[in-house]
Design a protein around this nucleic acid. Structure first.
Lengths: 336, 336
DNA sequence: CTGAAAGCGCTTACAG
DNA sequence: CTGAAAGCGCTTACAG
C-alpha cells in the first residue's frame, strides 16, 4: 500500500491526486491559459507534492518537440580548444536552460557535417541548431530551408537570409586602428587574420576605413595576410621589420598574432611600444599575460552565446528575427 | 501514389519493404545477433534505401534509455572559459558520438546543481552524467547511489568509490621540480594552486616528493599558496623576490601563475631563466606566447575527455571500471 | 530465429 | 473550460 513511494509519478497519479484528467494536467504543465485557476492550482500542488517531473521522451514523441537545441561546431584544428567557443557555449547553455531547453553539444569534423550530422539534425532529433565556425554556408542553408530553425554565430559569407549574431568586427578594426593614430603612429601596418573568414575580412575593412578617414594610405607591403596563429604573427612582424622603412604601429587581427609580433620585436632587439606600437583583437587572457600587456578590442563573448540562444527561442516561438550585431570596445593597455 | 516520398519512414515502412516484422527491424537496428543474416541484410538494405533514421524519442520512451549523457560543469567564475574544459568536452563529445550517444551540455552555477539539475539528472532524462570541476562530492555520490552512471573528471577529494579520470598531477609536479634541480637550481620554491582542489594539492605533493628525493628541504617562506590566477602568481613572485635570499627556481602550479611570476621578475629588473628559472603546468597557449617560452607539464586534455566517455560507455554496458590516471609529460622551453 | 501485441508517458484534436 | 480517446514510433517479454 506504499502509495506515493518510489517510482516516478506520471500524469495518471497527478491527475488522480488533483481530481482532474490527464489532459488538464498536461495543459497546466504546458501553460495553457484556458484551465480554471483553481484546478490549475490543484494540479500544481500535486506536482509539487509528488515531486513530479515530466518525461521528456514521452512528451517529445507525442508533441514532435524534443526540447533539444544542438550546438554544432566544426572542429578540424581544435577550434573548440579556443576558449572563445567555450565561452559562447556557456552563454548559450545558460539561456537555453533558463527556458527549459537543453543544449546538445556536437563537436564534429567539418567533412562529417554533411553526412551523419546533417541527417541527424534534419530528422527531427532537435528543435533547432546553432552553428559555430561556419565553413560553408550550404549545409546550413539547406537545413534552414527544410524548416529547421537555425542561428549562426559569426556572420556568414553571403547575406543569405540566415539569422546570425556577430560582434561588430569592422567597427572593432576601426577603433583599434584609430588608437594607433591617436598614439601618434604615422606608418600603420596590419597583420590580418585569415581573410577567408568574415571576421578576418571585416577587421581588415575596419582598418582600411580608419586609414581612409585619416587620409592615410598604407603601402602594399604594410598589409600582410596572417592566419590568426602565433607563428604567422611572428613571421609577418619580422617581415615588416625587414622593410626599408618599417611601420611604427601595427594592428594585429587577434591577440595571438599580436603576441607573435611582440616576440618578433623582442628578438629584433626592439621595444613595444617605444619602437612599434601594437594593438590586438579579442582581449583574451593572452592580452593580459603578454609583456607588455596588450591594448586589444574586447567583444562580449558570453553575450554572443546568450543572444544566439535568445534568437533561437524567438524562432521557436515563430517570432520573426533579424541578425544582431553586438558592439565592440577598446581595452587600453601598455602596448599602445 | 508518391510512395517513399517526403515523410520520415517508420518501422512499419521498413518492415513492409523488407518483408519482416517491426520487431525484427528493431532487432537488426539494435544489433541483436539472433536475426537470420539474410533477413538482417534485407532490413539494412531497406533502411539504407529509404533513408531511415530512428526516432530517438520513441526509442527512449519504449526502452527507458535516452541515449543522452550529460556533461555537468559548475561555472561560478567562468571556469568554462578555461580552454581546458572545452577541450575535455570536445574529447567527450567525439567519443560519445562515435558510440551513438549524444552529449548534453549543462553549464550551471554550483549552487544550482543541487536543485533543478539534480532532479533532472535523477529523473531518467539522461543515461549518465560526467562531472567537471567537482566542488562537493555529495551530490555526485547521491546520484551515483541512486544508480545513475557517473564519471568524474579530476580526482575527487575522498576516494569514495566514484569512477574518475585524472592526469597524474603528483607525477607532473615531480618531473617539473626535477627539471629545476637538473638545471642546477639550489633554492627551489613553489607557488601552489588552490590547494583546496585535488589538482592543487597533488602538484604540491609532487614538488615535495622531488624535494625530499633530492634531500632538499624548502624553507617555509618558499612555499606560497596561490589560486591559479595570473595576479596571484605575480604577487607571490614579488614576495619571493623580497626575501633576503630569494629562490633561484620556482615551480608554479599552472601556466597562468607562471606568466604572472615572469611579469614580476621583469618588473624587478630580473631575468628568467638567468636569475630565476621557472616551470609551469598545463602547457597551454600561454606557455608558448609568454617570453621566455615556458617549460611546462603537458597533460593529455583531449585524452581526459575521451577516457571519461569511454568509462561512461563501459559503465552503461555494465562493465566494471576503475579510476584511470593519465600520464603527464614535460615540455622543455627556454624558461628552465 | 521470429511475430503479434501490449505498453512506454505524454499531447492534442475532437466533442461537449 | 474539460475529458475520453487515439496516437506518437519505438522496444520487449511472451509464445512459438
Amino acid at each position: 500500500m506504499a502509495a506515493e513511494s518510489k517510482a516516478k509519478p506520471t500524469y495518471s497519479e497527478i491527475a488522480a491526486a488533483a481530481g482532474v484528467s490527464e489532459a488538464t494536467v498536461s495543459r497546466v504543465l504546458n501553460g495553457d491559459e484556458r484551465v480554471h485557476p483553481d484546478r490549475a492550482k490543484r494540479v500544481r500542488k500535486a506536482v509539487e507534492k509528488m515531486g513530479y517531473s515530466r518525461n521528456r521522451a514521452a512528451a517529445a514523441l507525442a508533441s514532435g518537440k524534443t526540447g533539444l537545441i544542438a550546438i554544432v561546431i566544426e572542429d578540424d584544428l581544435g577550434v573548440f580548444e579556443d576558449p572563445f567557443w567555450a565561452t559562447v557555449s556557456s552563454g548559450v547553455s545558460k539561456v537555453l536552460m533558463a527556458n527549459e531547453l537543453q543544449t546538445l553539444l556536437m563537436v564534429t569534423q567539418a567533412n562529417k557535417v554533411d553526412g551523419a550530422i546533417a541527417r541527424y539534425l534534419d530528422s527531427g532529433e532537435v528543435d533547432g541548431a546553432i552553428f559555430f565556425q561556419l565553413h560553408r554556408d550550404t549545409l546550413v542553408k539547406n537545413l534552414s530551408k527544410h524548416g529547421l530553425p537555425v542561428v549562426v554565430v559569426g556572420a556568414p559569407h553571403k547575406d543569405s537570409g540566415l539569422v546570425y549574431v556577430d560582434v561588430d568586427q569592422r567597427g572593432g578594426g576601426h577603433i583599434a586602428t584609430n588608437q594607433l593614430f591617436e598614439a601618434g603612429c604615422e606608418r600603420l601596418a596590419m597583420i590580418t587574420g585569415d581573410v577567408g573568414t568574415t571576421a578576418g575580412r571585416r577587421r581588415l575593412d575596419g582598418f582600411l576605413d580608419a586609414c581612409s578617414e585619416a587620409e592615410y594610405r598604407a603601402p602594399k607591403q604594410y598589409i600582410l595576410n596572417g592566419d590568426f596563429s602565433f607563428e604567422s604573427g611572428k613571421a609577418l612582424m619580422s617581415k615588416l621589420l625587414a622593410l626599408k622603412i618599417p611601420p611604427d604601429g601595427v594592428f594585429c587581427a587577434n591577440d595571438l598574432m599580436a603576441a607573435g609580433a611582440i616576440a618578433a620585436l623582442e628578438e629584433a632587439g626592439l621595444s613595444c611600444p617605444d619602437d612599434v606600437r601594437i594593438v590586438g583583437f579579442d582581449d583574451s587572457v593572452i592580452a593580459q599575460t603578454v609583456r607588455p600587456p596588450l591594448t586589444s578590442v574586447r567583444q562580449d563573448i558570453t553575450g554572443l552565446g546568450e543572444t544566439a540562444a535568445s534568437l533561437m527561442i524567438k524562432l521557436l516561438q515563430g517570432i520573426k528575427v533579424t541578425p544582431v550585431v553586438l558592439p565592440t570596445e577598446l581595452v587600453i593597455r601598455a602596448s599602445c
